[in-house]
C-alpha cells in the first residue's frame, strides 16, 4: 500500500470511523475542509497538495464508506473547473475560498444537463454553469433554486434556473469548454465510482455483522450455506470492482473509461444493497437499522453521472468500433 493511501485512509477513518460519525452535514463539512481534502487534487504551485486523481480516488471511496453528506462531490467539480479552466483575475481568490470550504456547487448530471441535481444550491456562494460551448461560475443570487426532496437524505438536490443578467466568471469557452466538460464528466464518474465502492464495502460489512449476530433455528444466520453463497458472490463482485477502480484510477482516463468504471461500481453497489436488505430481513425495512441509508444512496448514484443504459450503450459502440478496427 502506498504511503499516500495509508495517510489519507488513516485520517479518514479517524475522523469518520462509520456513517454515524458523519451524520451531521455541517459538522461533516467542517471536518472535510479541515482535513484539507479540497486541496488534494489541486497542483502545489497554486496552493494545493498535488496528489492528483489517484489521491482524490482514495477520498471518494472514504466519502462513500462513511456516507458523508453535503455537497462534497460538487465542490470537487468546481475546484477542478477553476484549476483546469482558463485563469482569470479572480480565479486564485475563488479557488482559495473553495479549498477552505466556502460552498460552491454544480450539477451531478453529466454533459450539458446542468440545471438539475445541483447539490445544496441554497447554501452555495457560486454555481457552476455547464453548457456545451461555455463553462462559467455564476454567483448564487443570479440563480433561482428549487429544492427537491430525495429518497437519499444524505444529499440535497436542487433545480436551478439562471437569471439572464447574472454576474458570471467564464472559465472556458468553445473547444476549451468541450474539453473541460469532458474532464468534469471524467472526475464526476470517478467520484461516483469511488463513492459506490466505499459504500458497497460498508454495506457488505453491516450485512455480515447482522448475519453473524442473529440466530434462527438454533444457529447463526451466517452458518446457512444458501446465505453464504449470496454473500460470497457480493464479495467477489466488490473485489472485482476494487481491482478495476485501483487499475483505472492509476492512469489518466477518458470520460468513457471513467463512465465504464462508474457503471460497474454503481451496479455492484446497487446489487449489494438490494441483497443486503433481503439478508437483513424485516429489520432491513426499518429506519432503526442503517442499511436503508446505503440502499438509497446506491440507487441515487446509479441515476447520477449518466445512467447504466447510457454508459453501456457507449461502451458497446466502442467495442463495435474496436472490432471493426481489428478486422
Amino acid at each position: 500500500m502506498s504511503e499516500m493511501r495509508q495517510t489519507l485512509e488513516d485520517s479518514a477513518r479517524k475522523v469518520f470511523p462509520n456513517w454515524e460519525a458523519a451524520r451531521d452535514a455541517s459538522d461533516a463539512w467542517a471536518q472535510v475542509a479541515q482535513l484539507g481534502w479540497f486541496m488534494v487534487g489541486v497542483p502545489e504551485k497554486i496552493g494545493g497538495l498535488g496528489l492528483g486523481d489517484e489521491g482524490l480516488a482514495i477520498i471518494f471511496a472514504e466519502l462513500g464508506r462513511a456516507l458523508v453528506p453535503g455537497p462534497v462531490l460538487t465542490q470537487f467539480l468546481v475546484i477542478e473547473a477553476l484549476v483546469a479552466g482558463a485563469p482569470f483575475e479572480e480565479r486564485d481568490g475563488l479557488l482559495e475560498r473553495a479549498m477552505s470550504g466556502e460552498i460552491m456547487t454544480a450539477s451531478l448530471a453529466i454533459g450539458g444537463r446542468s440545471s438539475e441535481a445541483v447539490m445544496d444550491a441554497d447554501k452555495a456562494s457560486h454555481i457552476l454553469l455547464r453548457r456545451e460551448d461555455v463553462v462559467a461560475l455564476i454567483s448564487q443570487d443570479g440563480a433561482q433554486v428549487k429544492a427537491r426532496e430525495t429518497w437519499d437524505v444524505s444529499r440535497r438536490l436542487f433545480d436551478v434556473a439562471v437569471v439572464d443578467d447574472a454576474q458570471r466568471y467564464v472559465v472556458a469557452r468553445g473547444q476549451k469548454a468541450a474539453q473541460l466538460n469532458d474532464r468534469l464528466d471524467t472526475l464526476l464518474c470517478i467520484a461516483l465510482a469511488g463513492d459506490a465502492l466505499g459504500g458497497a464495502r460498508a454495506a457488505l460489512g453491516l450485512t455480515l455483522d447482522h448475519l453473524k449476530g442473529r440466530s434462527q433455528f438454533d444457529r447463526p444466520l451466517a452458518m446457512f450455506q444458501a446465505l453464504k453463497h449470496r454473500v460470497a458472490d457480493l464479495k467477489m463482485m466488490i473485489d472485482t470492482a476494487d481491482a478495476f477502480y485501483a487499475d483505472r484510477t492509476s492512469q489518466s482516463l477518458t470520460a468513457l473509461e471513467a463512465g465504464e468504471l462508474k457503471n460497474f461500481c454503481c451496479a455492484v453497489y446497487r446489487d449489494t444493497v438490494e441483497d443486503a436488505i433481503q439478508l437483513h430481513g424485516g429489520v432491513g425495512l426499518t429506519t432503526e437499522y442503517a442499511i436503508h441509508r446505503f440502499f438509497k444512496r446506491a440507487f441515487l448514484n446509479c441515476a447520477l453521472g449518466g445512467d447504466a443504459d447510457y454508459w453501456n450503450e457507449r461502451a458497446g459502440r466502442a467495442a463495435m468500433a474496436e472490432s471493426q478496427a481489428k478486422a
Partner: peptide, 28 residues
C-alpha cells in the same frame, strides 16, 4: 443488429465486466 441499442448495451456491459476481471487477474 449492429445498431440495436438493447444489444449494444448488453455488449457494453459485458465489455466493462471483462475489463474489470482483467484488472482483478492482474492484481492477483
Amino acid at each position: 443488429r449492429a445498431d440495436d441499442r438493447g444489444a449494444l448495451r448488453d455488449l457494453g456491459a459485458l465489455k466493462i465486466r471483462i475489463d474489470a476481471v482483467c484488472a482483478l487477474a492482474d492484481q492477483f
